[in-house]
Nucleic acid binder design. Structure first.
Lengths: 186, 186
DNA sequence: TGTCTAATTAGATAGTTGTCGAATTAATGG
DNA sequence: CCATTAATTCGACAACTATCTAATTAGACA
């Protein structure tokens, strides 16, 4: 979603169009004249802005009036300020394996866990996903481990315990580190 | 430079990189491994993010640590909320004055300075251009001034001095701020 | 000095996106 | 229905961007 938003605004013509629309509603013809592009081109840009939820369409007769969607703009710009939100972007990889597709059902838009299923079969890919958020070859304090987990789910105790039980994380003298995937249980 | 900001974020790889960097500082190698791209590619993306002021570079030995620039992010996302700002986008026209055309010869495609001419007559429009990259109504630390200059030219000392000599920038107690254009010398 | 490592820059290529003219759809009114 | 007007969709081409490998730069160290 966020990517679509940025793509929509990452072109001078579209920024200009949005600027005009922000001032008041405009028809396609008007916009084409104002930005010196042909109507099909403008139509194409407007479709992208609309797809991103930035403008809305009101039809009267056969002229189309495009107006600004304030809500989208304020919602998205606000979400940029939330640090967690931003970090969640890192996990935006296209899902491939069936595990990944399964996982998708348990993740929110912003890369947090919605729930933790009861069956072991479903829990394993989730733990793998979580374990991969730890870097290999460094140690973590317990506080850091908790922090890393809590960025994805509030129940740090359960997940810390499970990660260790599945040999994804190891602990010694209060220090933690990630174990190689080859040895993971599950 | 709102367009630059959006362009920088309008690509999945760069969003991912920014997400990783938001969590903590990373080196180019780390990032390349994490997003599964080659180092030159990552380097290229980082340059764009840096150009947009979204990340900063801290060099230690010969590894480069990239970190998040919270300020830029919050400043720009806030400016999206300001309606006026948005409407102003409509007026983004290509430059045409004779100064602007002169300036064009000294700028690279990506908006950096190729050279700094010897004659005062030619130097003035360049300094004006540079000074406009500072915001009015806020103060900058010396580090921030350097960073802003270096985004356009490596010789921060010369330009900092010249900006002050032409009364475009003022300094007091180690803080800098932009002066109104009406008072600029040249 | 020479070597090693990390990063950047250059150059090539493949993929994506912006723009246009032509053809098509949709609404309105004789 | 047919003509008119506004908008969208289609197909082609040009411009731009992402990515790679190879070459270069810069720091550390011995």
């Amino acid at each position: 979603m966020l990517l679509q938003f940025f793509k929509a605004l990452a072109h001078e013509s579209r920024l200009r169009l949005l600027g005009l629309i922000a001032a008041r509603e405009h028809s396609v013809q008007e916009l084409a004249a104002l930005v010196a592009l042909k109507e099909p081109t403008v139509s194409h840009h407007l479709a992208m802005l609309r797809e991103a939820g930035l403008v809305s369409l009101r039809q009267d007769g056969n002229t189309h009036w495009y107006g600004l969607e304030h809500k989208t703009l304020s919602r998205l710009s606000r979400s940029l300020l939330a640090r967690d939100q931003l970090e969640a972007l890192a996990g935006t990889k296209p899902p491939r394996s069936s595990d990944d597709r399964m996982l998708q059902n348990y993740l929110t838009e912003d890369g947090r866990l919605k729930a933790f299923p009861a069956t072991l079969k479903k829990r394993r890919p989730i733990l793998r996903w979580l374990a991969r958020h730890f870097e290999e070859g460094r140690t973590y304090s317990e506080a850091e481990v908790n922090e890393t987990i809590e960025r994805r789910h509030h129940d740090r105790e359960t997940f810390r315990r499970e990660l260790i039980a599945h040999k994804m994380l190891a602990r010694k003298d209060g220090s933690y580190w990630r174990l190689p995937e080859s040895g993971w249980v599950g």
